[in-house]
Design a protein around this nucleic acid. Sequence first.
DNA 1: CGATTAAAGGATAAAAATTATTATTCATTT
DNA 2: AAATGAATAATAATTTTTATCCTTTAATCG
Lengths: 133, 133
Amino acid sequence: MKNYTDTLRSHNLKATPQRLAITDILYAHGHISIESLYDVMIKKFSSISLATIYKNINLMLENSFIQEVKLPNQKTVYELTKHSHSHIMCDRCGMVNDITIDLNAIVNTVSTLENFEVSKADLVLSGVCKNCA
Amino acid sequence: MKNYTDTLRSHNLKATPQRLAITDILYAHGHISIESLYDVMIKKFSSISLATIYKNINLMLENSFIQEVKLPNQKTVYELTKHSHSHIMCDRCGMVNDITIDLNAIVNTVSTLENFEVSKADLVLSGVCKNCA
DNA sequence: CGATTAAAGGATAAAAATTATTATTCATTT
DNA sequence: AAATGAATAATAATTTTTATCCTTTAATCG
Ligand SMILES: [Mn+2]
Ligand SMILES: [Mn+2]
Ligand SMILES: [Zn+2]
Ligand SMILES: [Zn+2]
């Protein structure tokens, strides 16, 4: 398991046990909601406050250490920041996975056609995963 | 201005003045948040309850009369259900506009490559609009 | 129409989610 | 090891959303 101490520090975040745990959990789960994160954290830190979760998640968001993924009909999930990518989400089991798609063609089309300077593309494809099919 | 009485009824919703107003506002604004919707409604119905807004929005969502659009870093907005489309959102002024893009190629690629049965694609391109550029 | 009835609205309380405050504890620097 | 600024836990406060209860009203039918 990777040690995120230096990564946290490089984002101007002190490497506390709680933050290292949050990071490990994000790494292990890929995508996780505040609620689930708290459920996992409380097992390691029996007296952790939900406010600590929120504060850290918000701080990490501000520092772009993590990013949020808003999903249709489901709670927002968070993940460690990685290369730009899209998501598939299963309506049956709730699974969320990364997918890498080239959206350049679309971005270029919109840029010129709409005269809109695109800086980010958030795409979520929902449907039924292979396990649930 | 279109009269939505029959449209509401066809979705099994009684055509009350409040609902007709909500519908008109959605039509006029295109995309609107709960908060803004309430601000506009209170001008017409000085004693309307925020709960009525929520109840109606949730009902209309269930009946697919309207749909919600989740946006990065901004509050969820709602719009009248129309043909499937994507959105551009300006990070400066908050503008949200519809765009029509053919995502079939992408959907097909993902379907086969990931063995995932796609039923919906939610795409939001954020950046800077022409007015703010 | 005018009565009937199921549904909707308004007021309000309650619950859930998020943010703010503050004393205490801890990570980092010296 | 001590100092210090930041993070945590506990808690309160705020915001957002849903539930309840009673009144009002839209739709139906004679
Ligand atoms: Mn992801
Ligand atoms: Mn739209
Ligand atoms: Zn599934
Ligand atoms: Zn703009």
